[in-house]
Amino acid sequence: MTATPLLKVTDLAIEFSTPQGRVRAVDGISFDVYENETLGIVGESGCGKTVTGLSLLGLIPSPPGRIAAGSIELAGRNLAKLDEAAMREVRGGEISMIFQEPMTALNPVFTVASQMTDVIIRHKGLTRAQARREAIDMLGKVGIPAPARRLDDYPHQMSGGMRQRVMIAMALACGPKLLVADEPTTALDVTTQAQVIELIGQLQREFRMAVILITHDLGVVAETCQRALVMYCGRIAEQAQIEPLFRSPRHPYTHGLLDSIPRIRDQRLTQLPTIAGRVPDLLNLPPGCRFADRCTRAQEDCRTAEPELTQAGQSAFACYHPIGHQPAEPVA
């Protein structure tokens, strides 16, 4: 891609101090996000995907956490170096975030109206009456029926799906360039999840914003993203466009993850494929590849040095013994 990226993350490392020592939850990851694009970040719990998302908005709780290295450039400005006051302008303005649990992300003691107008007044400098009109407009856009009436509801008066819509409305109220969505549909039922996914896609097209979708659900990624990063243990295992990533995964972890999803099949299997073992302890990482102990393709070299993320063909992957060979260059 030749266009300049909207967001450029370079060698980002995020560290937490724990009583047992320092832990690198994210350890040297780099990726770009382009305007109007949806990038998926997938991985299992503890892989660092949420921490990565939080760091983009300067929301890493500090202490115990801190950005230990790397840069986060949004349209040329390094967010990792901004102070809290400057970051507050970015947050909710240029970058917004929606969270997994709308009940805990919304304040239960304020009405939707007061929470939404606060954001709009702060970032757009409108009067309360103008902000209220914008809020009603936004609630209508996210599909809340009778928005003028629901605006004065408290969060508990709404269903889970509606609360998630309110959160999306709040996040988009100031027209952000980038939306970070952390497991936005995980707490929702499948039929509601389908509605919310549809809504995010539709709003993205309307506002031409970039979306980073953080999720453990590969099905959601396949249906919504153009590109995805697969994270394992704080590192990027593989990064590619959706098609090659799902059709011909190169990293054995991506392959294992795709294989072990229970999916509706024509024939019932007697055994589901699994990934043996479990994720290593971040405090006590193996010397070589972090996935080596669970990998069926691991050899001697995997246990000595950690593989770097390298581009080959359509994907970038961090593996010495990737699955499949690149097809020979077609003769033009």
Partner: peptide
């Protein structure tokens, strides 16, 4: 039927 069709499938472009 609605429930089945709502499950996101890990197959791009299905």
């Amino acid at each position: 039927r609605a429930l089945m069709s709502a499950i996101p499938q890990p197959e791009p472009g299905s």
